[in-house]
């Protein structure tokens, strides 16, 4: 066999162009406008917070990641950026870093790294921060003065409390939930991002564009955001029409972390169901929970918890939505008269 030039592989011998690494980096790419917008709105604080959370994730992945090259797959980068985008601009950097470390270590690496985790690591980090530092994470300093001035106490010493001396501003959701005059922020403001909130909560428009780009490229399952939006709109519309809630359905859709969560967190492939049917169920669950938590829950924003809770249900959904093998008939059909 001197002339054997060939290598032997199993079929199929051609592969689609998709690759996990490509998917990950195009998610990062599609986030860039959102990041730019958050820096535009919130100044250098936004940049520092994103830097800190991403650094937390990258460092953890580098130290404990399952294999050496795992930084290159871009997944740790996504986790860090997404975590940063859920934080308020004035958030102390040491907390953002800690959130990244926690989310990465206990949300992902402990399960064996990429593809093996149950919960979205960015949200695990966020949930940890929410539970550990409930005050800091719900403090949105009012925009002050120049673009370059910091929004709150970003540089609080590690393990020390931030000093908030500026006036705080409520997010649109908080306004409506706890405010006494029930301000409904106009949807156009929410859409363009000219409101207060966490880094990625503003500028629904850019997130929408990024999400549509990813869906077009086939890098996210459009069933999930669509079902979330449909459910949220329908359920909150019903409650609004019945006069039970003060949240108009469109406001519900464009406020808070809804856009970011629906397009970037819920669609995390690892932690969402496999089949499209499962994705519909998943999206339905998130939409429903988010409306319930926003209207009756203790916190103004429920997107994170809704997604985490549904993440926990994903293995169960996957079990329940096993596809029906081709040609097999369900019991019901079998019994039906021919």
């Amino acid at each position: 066999m001197t002339d054997s030039i060939v290598k032997l592989t199993a079929s199929p011998h051609v592969r689609s162009d998709d690759s996990t690494v490509k998917i990950m980096w195009s998610v990062v790419l599609s986030l860039l406008p959102v990041i730019a917008a958050s820096i535009w709105f919130f100044g250098p604080s936004a940049f520092f917070v994103l830097l800190a959370s991403t650094a937390g994730c990258l460092v953890t992945e580098r130290l404990f990641g399952s294999h050496r090259g795992s930084l290159a797959d871009g997944s740790a980068m996504i986790t860090g950026l997404l975590l940063g985008l859920t934080l308020p601009p004035g958030f102390p950097l040491w907390m953002a870093f800690l959130g990244g470390v926690f989310g990465m270590a206990f949300g992902k690496i402990i399960f064996g790294g990429l593809g093996q985790n149950i919960f979205n690591p960015a949200l695990v980090g966020r949930a940890f921060l929410q539970a550990a530092f409930p005050v800091a994470i719900t403090t949105w300093p009012a925009k002050s003065g120049q673009w370059w001035s910091l929004q709150g106490d970003n540089f609080a010493l590690p393990f020390m409390s931030p000093v908030v001396d500026t006036a705080t501003a409520a997010t649109p959701l908080g306004h409506l939930k706890f405010g006494d005059d029930s301000v409904v922020t106009p949807v156009i403001d929410l859409f363009l991002g000219t409101t207060g909130g966490s880094l990625g909560e503003t500028s629904a428009l850019l997130i929408l564009l990024g999400g549509i780009y990813l869906a077009y490229r086939g890098h996210l399952n459009w069933h999930i955001p669509l079902s979330i939006f449909v459910t949220t709109f329908a359920v909150s519309g019903l409650f609004f029409a019945l006069g039970i809630s003060q949240f108009p359905p469109l406001f519900m859709l464009f406020s808070g972390g809804m856009m970011l969560g629906a397009f970037y967190m819920a669609t995390d492939m690892v932690t969402s169901p496999l089949s499209n049917k499962g994705c519909w169920l998943f999206g339905f669950g998130i939409g429903f929970l988010v409306v319930i938590i926003r209207i009756w829950g203790g916190l103004p924003e429920g997107m994170m918890y809704a997604i985490l809770l549904m993440n926990a249900l994903v293995p169960f959904i996957n079990r329940a939505t096993q596809p029906r093998p081709f040609g097999s008939v369900s019991k019901k059909q079998e019994e039906a008269p021919k």
Partner: peptide, 26 residues
């Protein structure tokens, strides 16, 4: 070029295989 071999990564449960399977397996 036609059959470039790429590194095998961990499964990220994207579900694309379910959408591809013509006989609806998992």
């Amino acid at each position: 070029d036609e059959c470039k071999q790429q590194e095998i990564m961990p499964c990220i449960r994207c579900g694309k295989c379910l959408d591809a399977c013509p006989i609806f397996l998992n």
